[in-house]
Simulated scan of single mutants.
Amino acid sequence: MLAHEEKQVEELIHQLPKSGILGSQYRSIIQYQNFWFPGYLLIENILKCQKHFKAKDNDLIIASHPKTGTTWLNTLLFAIVNRANGNHPMSESPILSQHPHHLVNRLEDVNFGGGFYNQLSSSQLDDIPSPRILGTHFPYVLLPESIKTSNYCRILYICRNPFDTLVSQWHFYNKVLIDLDGEQTLKPYTFEQFFEDWFEGRILFGPFFEHVTDYWVQSLANPKKVLFLKYEDLKENPTVHLKRMADFVGMPFSIEEESRGVIREIIEMCSINNMKELDVNKNGLNYYGVEKKAYFRKGEVGGWINYFTPPMIERMNKLMQQKLQGTGLTFKLV
């Protein structure tokens, strides 16, 4: 950014609401456009991305709220696209040798290092073979206009029921944020504490329901532009939804491919049981300094029941009813 732009960003951030994370002011989150983000660097890169990113008509954007199936969708879409391009046989897929978050470049740069603009220059971005697969946790309102207005750039959004999402985020943030706390000042966030922050929407890229419903509305208004996927449906019938994805991005499976078991191969290769056992996903850190294995826990539907108390369930059900009323969006909880 130019000096005057940086000053404008500093002035903007100074005025924005802030809150501690994990009950600590050492890790602050900042509210911008009614959503919460992890610190100065990401707000700067949101503005940078909005101003400078130019979508191509054949770009494929994976959008999601954190811990809703992003890693899984990264691998599935990568496999669909690269199998259609004939880039390599399935047995030599980069999915088997690279972490999923190294295969899909992100539009934002979180405050603990790595990410899209720190990994690639604008010229390198242009050199990525088409179709480019790019990921983001941006809410729809903050996507660059070039993505929204492109006639053929497609968005695949994945969501997960709020109960399981909350549990997955609690495990992940406790692991990641405490590991990255060089001063060793943070204590584990209790589930009760995290539930209260989550309920108020005071979480990274939250509030959850606003994030999800914005993309849901867009998928109804323009189904050729936005494909809305539910984690629970993908778990229940992966074949059907893998075919939906392939059709949506213009790379449908042929009858010959189906007869050869290509769909089954992709599903098995990208399954959480297979992915978590790959050496590349068990060892080392990713670009953000996060343990690679932290992205693979259980991937279950309904595991939330072991964490929520009856009063929590009642409050969440009421919140869900309030936030989803009139949208037509529903979730499978078990």
Rank of each mutant, 00 (worst) to 15 (best):
246 A>P: 03
84 A>L: 07
50 Q>A: 12
72 W>N: 03
235 K>S: 02
184 Q>I: 11
110 V>G: 08
136 T>D: 02
154 R>M: 11
9 V>K: 07
128 I>T: 03
150 S>N: 04
232 E>M: 07
79 A>Q: 09
308 F>M: 03
95 I>Y: 02
287 Y>E: 11
319 L>Q: 04
262 V>R: 01
80 I>K: 00
316 M>A: 00
166 L>K: 01
169 Q>V: 08
147 I>P: 01
101 H>G: 04
43 I>A: 15
296 F>I: 08
6 E>L: 15
245 M>L: 12
264 R>A: 08
79 A>R: 03
288 Y>K: 09
82 N>I: 09
137 H>F: 01
170 W>Y: 08
135 G>Q: 06
213 T>Q: 00
189 Y>K: 10
184 Q>V: 10
155 I>F: 05
172 F>V: 07
102 H>W: 08
23 G>S: 11
68 T>H: 01
126 D>I: 07
292 K>E: 04
181 D>Q: 09
187 K>G: 15
65 H>C: 05
265 E>D: 13
287 Y>S: 11
292 K>G: 02
131 P>S: 08
92 E>W: 09
235 K>W: 04
118 N>H: 13
10 E>H: 12
306 N>G: 11
222 N>Q: 12
314 E>I: 06
73 L>E: 04
22 L>N: 13
154 R>W: 08
1 M>T: 12
64 S>C: 08
95 I>T: 05
80 I>W: 00
53 F>T: 09
284 G>I: 08
328 G>I: 01
321 Q>T: 11
34 N>D: 15
91 S>I: 07
65 H>W: 09
172 F>Y: 15
1 M>A: 13
167 V>D: 00
81 V>G: 03
104 V>Y: 09
104 V>A: 10
173 Y>E: 14
261 G>T: 02
278 L>G: 00
199 F>T: 02
289 G>F: 06
314 E>W: 04
39 G>N: 07
282 K>T: 07
204 L>Q: 05
50 Q>G: 14
92 E>S: 12
49 C>V: 15
138 F>I: 05
116 F>T: 06
169 Q>M: 14
277 E>V: 07
87 N>H: 12
117 Y>F: 13
281 N>W: 01
114 G>E: 04
42 L>T: 14
199 F>D: 06
155 I>R: 01
74 N>E: 14
280 V>L: 08
137 H>P: 01
323 K>G: 02
111 N>I: 10
248 F>H: 00
105 N>D: 12
281 N>R: 05
185 T>A: 13
3 A>T: 14
255 I>K: 10
125 L>P: 00
81 V>N: 03
205 F>V: 10
174 N>W: 13
240 V>Y: 07
298 K>L: 10
267 I>H: 04
274 N>P: 01
309 T>G: 10
28 S>V: 14
143 L>V: 06
307 Y>R: 03
306 N>K: 14
310 P>H: 06
128 I>H: 02
132 R>D: 03
218 Q>K: 14
140 Y>Q: 10
184 Q>F: 11
13 I>T: 09
191 F>N: 06
168 S>L: 03
127 D>F: 00
73 L>Q: 02
126 D>N: 10
110 V>L: 13
150 S>V: 02
247 D>T: 05
249 V>M: 10
261 G>E: 04
